[in-house]
Design a protein around this nucleic acid. Structure first.
Lengths: 197, 197
DNA sequence: ACCTGAACACCGTTCAAGT
DNA sequence: ACCTGAACACCGTTCAAGT
């Protein structure tokens, strides 16, 4: 039970993000939702961005946990990877403003600290899913795991971000991002050819 | 020579985006840069977002032109595609705040209209580069052009967006996005295998 | 047709006190 | 240690006039 003010403020900010997007998260609205004065949050967070970073860190942790569940609760490595990817997409669709906070907000990345560390952990948990598929030969084994993970992560993020931004129009072949995800998994599911010129 | 106020306002907004990011683009700062009163912009644009959309549309047009140049000025289709990709990455790095406006800003997509039309044109110009590579057999020909274009576009956007957001840490294999771009081109440069289970 | 000055409601942040 | 009320500078937007 998170009863302390700090925790309540984070929850209130997350709720406002879901309901009205980033611009709805004013320090004053957060404070009023918790029932404290408009400047009480400054006793717990340095400024508005620090409060947002706390939400992002919480969500990154939840995403890491989802990847870990995907790893253990599925029959095959490929099924696990697909479950992790599905969880990632579902999170973005359910919490668009919060998703953007994690992966795109430029104000939040520079402050480094614990959020950056958690970002690396979450990425690593996704990498485990990729590595298992390589060991299983369902994904090309002669590409470095880290690079293959980076490629999949970036593609996934690009697809989700374009959809959330309203840029994934059907006319672009982006009407259904699951189709493109399936395509990339199919194309990566084979030995890499040697470099061509 | 764009001397009318509307054009000057767009240029001033673009400059402020480059120099101080989205939050530096206040209607008042734009107006003062052009030398008009703080509310004069409302005679030319419905609101702040309409002004930003005008910047985005200008940049989408420039990107379309870059793709078209890449198509004609290079020896091989693959060289053309690579040039288009390089122009895309360079634009994102040079104008990060403006890049985000085109591809991520959720407030701008919903207003539809001319910006959306230009977005489709720009995407189509990129698709031509992909199609030429398929015809040339440097990219897998047995995948629909539209889907292959969507995959490459999304991957490219994901890589650039993560870098601009400061999320492309070397520890994630994302320290050098050109490496991942080269990897995906290599992996796509072969016939697609049939679906696996 | 285009511009200006005044005004409104709102915001992030700070400060001096209060318990 | 935590909270409050008042205050400051700033912002997007609107309105009644001016030329």
């Amino acid at each position: 039970m998170v009863a302390e003010t700090a925790g309540q403020l984070v929850n209130a900010a997350a709720r406002l993000l879901d309901e009205g997007g980033l611009k709805a998260v004013t320090v004053r609205a957060v404070a009023s939702l918790v029932g404290v004065s408009h400047n009480a949050p400054y006793r717990h967070f340095e400024d508005r961005n620090a409060l947002l970073a706390a939400v992002a860190e919480m969500d990154l942790r939840a995403l890491e946990a989802a990847f870990q569940r995907a790893k253990t609760r599925h029959a095959s490595p490929l099924a696990g990877l697909r479950a992790g990817i599905a969880a990632f997409i579902a999170y973005g669709r359910k919490h668009p403003a919060r998703y953007r906070l994690l992966f795109s907000d430029p104000e939040l990345a520079s402050r480094g600290g614990t959020m950056e560390v958690q970002g690396l952990r979450t990425f690593a948990a996704f990498g485990v899913l990729v590595h298992q598929c390589q060991a299983d030969a369902t994904l090309s084994a002669n590409v470095e795991t880290k690079q293959l993970t980076a490629l999949l992560y970036a593609t996934l993020h690009g697809l989700v971000d374009l959809e959330l931004g309203g840029r994934a129009r059907p006319a672009k072949g982006l009407g259904d991002i699951e189709t493109i995800v399936a395509l990339v998994l199919r194309l990566l599911g084979q030995p890499a050819p040697t470099a061509r010129r």
